[in-house]
């Protein structure tokens, strides 16, 4: 008997079992999910999002936001996410179908963002925070994304897109303005689109205690 063959077969079977369960199974069973029709609005759940928001996913990935932010609401008893109002219901695979890559994250150095668009609807406020987090939240350790903005001198007329109300050390000097780049606009559109407050049959809202 060839011992190497025996060893090899054993490795193949153990490794292969997990491959079938954790790779082939999800590819076959979770890889072709469709949105469900929404009778009330005539649209679908999860709702389709704008192209700008989809472009924002790339900005989110490029800047490593998921190093500090999770995007998953876990049910009881595995967490207190729902009691902490991070979301009304558990995140399920169908919630991910609009994403290119699911940004589940491993650390909550910052808050969970699964439903950020449900608690924040003001784009200008998000711009101010991204441009200079500590000017909005002094105790924050979130990095400044000022490099996604253009700091420039106002020529003739101020831009209509310039961010208003900036304070703190990065605030523009008189005669200057801060204008979001295309990337910043896309990122904010993406953040505003983060909202799982639509019903899915596989993820019922837990009834209040």
């Amino acid at each position: 008997m060839n011992k190497l063959t025996l060893l090899f077969t054993g490795i193949f079977l153990t490794f292969g079992s997990a491959w079938v369960g954790l790779v082939a199974y999800p590819v076959a069973n979770l890889g072709q999910m469709q949105p469900l029709p929404n009778e009330e609005t005539g649209g679908v759940n999860p709702p389709t999002v704008s192209g700008l928001a989809i472009a924002g996913q790339k900005v989110y990935a490029a800047n490593g936001c998921m190093e500090c932010h999770t995007q998953q609401v876990r049910p009881d008893p595995f967490s207190t996410d729902i009691a902490k109002q991070l979301g009304k219901r558990q995140t399920v695979p169908r919630d991910e179908i609009r994403e290119h890559t699911p940004f589940l994250g491993e650390y909550r150095i910052g808050q969970d963002l699964s439903n950020y668009g449900a608690r924040q609807t003001d784009a200008a406020a998000i711009h101010r925070h991204l441009y200079s987090p500590t000017s909005v939240t002094p105790w924050s350790n979130m990095p400044s994304y000022s490099y996604l903005y253009e700091y420039r001198k106002i020529v003739s007329q101020p831009s209509a897109h310039a961010i208003q109300g900036l304070t703190g050390s990065r605030a523009p000097k008189p005669g200057y303005e801060v204008v979001p780049t295309q990337q910043a606009e896309a990122l904010v559109a993406y953040l505003l689109s983060l909202n799982q407050n639509y019903p899915l049959p596989e993820s019922p809202e837990p009834t209040a205690k």
């Binding site: 790779v23 999800p26 979770l30 890889g31 999910m33 589940l104």
Partner: peptide, 9 residues
Amino acid sequence: IQASAQPAI
């Protein structure tokens, strides 16, 4: 593949 199948992999 579709993002819904990615976390397990």
